[in-house]
């Protein structure tokens, strides 16, 4: 209770929790803070291992992870970093407006890894993971729907949550929060 009193400003990564990042073979030999794993830059986020491939090596990295025992993609989502000043990226990885974040899981031994790929605003395109993990189909459709990041080679690039004729991508930071007046059929006019 007292030693935790100013943890709201503490920013020390702790290697605990269910993520056993040291299990990855490439990471194990490089020590606790490896520079690269699977041939791409790696960082540690609160004890969770994060890979930072560029768009060219993105599918290659995911395929290498699959061959290394990561059996499933658990999550794939977008992040819009418009107007964000500081970013926790390794040296050599240029910050872009959009990010696609993929979380993978291995069962033997149980461990997780995350892949963050930077997507520039003027060309928001990245390769689809459908041929590596078909379970990303819905997740990539959602990411396109919400952020406007297109996935090359996706079998069904259509909106999934918003109506098909919707304009814009709601989770972008420049998509204003607001309310749309709902007109009920047959409702009396306000005056």
């Amino acid at each position: 209770m007292s030693e935790e009193s100013d943890t709201a400003v503490a920013d020390t990564p702790v290697a605990d929790g269910p993520v056993a990042d040291s299990e990855a073979p490439a990471a194990a030999e490089a020590g606790s803070q490896p520079e690269t794993a699977y041939g791409v830059a790696v960082t540690d986020s609160r004890g969770q291992m994060v890979l930072h491939p560029d768009r060219e090596t993105y599918v290659e990295t995911i395929t290498a992870l699959r061959d290394d025992g990561f059996v499933s993609v658990m999550d794939l989502c977008g992040v819009d970093n418009l107007n964000r000043v500081t970013r926790d990226l390794p040296v050599g990885v240029g910050a872009e407006r959009f990010e696609v974040v993929v979380s993978l899981i291995a069962h033997e031994p149980p461990r997780r890894i995350r892949v963050r790929v930077q997507i520039p605003e003027n060309d928001p395109t990245v390769a689809s993971l459908f041929d590596v993990f078909p379970g990303t189909e819905n997740l990539e459709r959602e990411t396109w729907d919400m952020f406007g990041v297109t996935f090359d080679g996706h079998p069904d690039p259509s909106r999934i949550l918003m109506p098909p004729d919707w304009q814009g991508h709601p989770l972008r930071k420049d998509f204003a929060v607001g309310s749309v007046p709902v007109q009920f059929k047959g409702a009396a006019a306000p005056r």
């Binding site: 709201a8 920013d11 929790g17 609160r46 500081t86």
Partner: peptide
Amino acid sequence: GFKVPEGEVYVS
């Protein structure tokens, strides 16, 4: 609200 240090996590 309370301030949360910069960073990103995935918890499941």
